[in-house]
């Protein structure tokens, strides 16, 4: 806890929390409406390493999609850096995902036609903050830090599952977003690769001050994170 406490803004500072949920509820409309999450209130600051746990079907992924602005709540709202997002246009929310939020899913979802480095460069090319050469340099450097220096010009299909997942992490970090949202990032990996990915996330929090929110089934792994949110039937519960 001490680590995240250090990177959090000092108490009383005006800086708003990075991600905030207020009364967040998502109900799928239909003949029988399905409630995915209900009345979630939470505040996540900079530099936190948060685990979302809970039984299967409890709404972990749903919550993550809502916090990541990939899905829109039925009621309640998500604030990013203190700004309510429910009134944002679709384009503005996409922009927020591009620069503020990085996603890592259980499956890597790399674009198969693009090389590893090109995949990492996609969010950079979309944001256009860097020149092409700088983008490539940054992608190669990040891949190097994740132990993938020999693979930068390979196609995703030539990589192992764990390697691909690390590429996905690099891609999520491409635009240096303050927050990484990961949905069971190690769910499809063996224990060695899992540990590798976990260490990367740990390092992001500790060394780079990133906020990482990771859904996990692995309670032992969750225990090694700084904060745990436990979901039961779409609602926050005590673990």
């Amino acid at each position: 806890m001490s680590l995240s406490a250090q990177t959090r803004p000092p108490a009383g500072a005006a800086a708003p929390p990075l991600i905030e949920a207020r009364g967040l509820t998502r109900i799928l409309p239909g003949l029988v409406p399905v409630t995915l999450v209900r009345d979630i209130d939470l505040t996540i600051g900079a530099g936190e390493f948060v685990a979302i746990t809970g039984p299967s079907g409890s709404g972990k992924s749903s919550l993550l999609y809502l916090l990541g602005l990939l899905d829109a709540p039925t009621r309640g709202e998500v604030l990013i850096n203190g700004h309510p997002t429910h009134l944002h246009s679709e384009t503005r929310r996409a922009r927020e995902r591009l620069s503020t939020l990085g996603f890592v899913f259980q499956f890597h979802f790399l674009l198969p036609e693009f090389s590893v480095a090109e995949n990492v460069m996609i969010p950079m090319r979309k944001l256009k903050r860097l020149g092409t050469r700088d983008m490539r340099a940054r992608a190669v450097r990040m891949l190097g830090e994740l132990g993938l220096e020999e693979h930068v010009d390979k196609l995703p299909i030539q990589l192992s599952g764990g390697q691909r997942q690390r590429v996905a992490v690099a891609r999520a970090l491409a635009n240096d977003p303050p927050a990484i949202l990961a949905d069971e990032p190690t769910g499809s990996l063996d224990s060695k690769s899992s540990e590798q990915v976990f260490q990367i996330l740990r390092k992001l929090v500790d060394d780079h001050g990133k906020t990482v929110i990771a859904v996990t089934h692995d309670l032992e792994m969750a225990a090694r994170m700084d904060r745990r949110l436990h979901l039961v039937d779409g609602m926050l519960a005590d673990p």
Partner: peptide, 12 residues
């Protein structure tokens, strides 16, 4: 889907 999650909007 992945492009959208990365920050592409509908127009893109």
């Amino acid at each position: 889907a992945i492009l959208k999650s990365l920050g592409f909007d509908q127009a893109d």
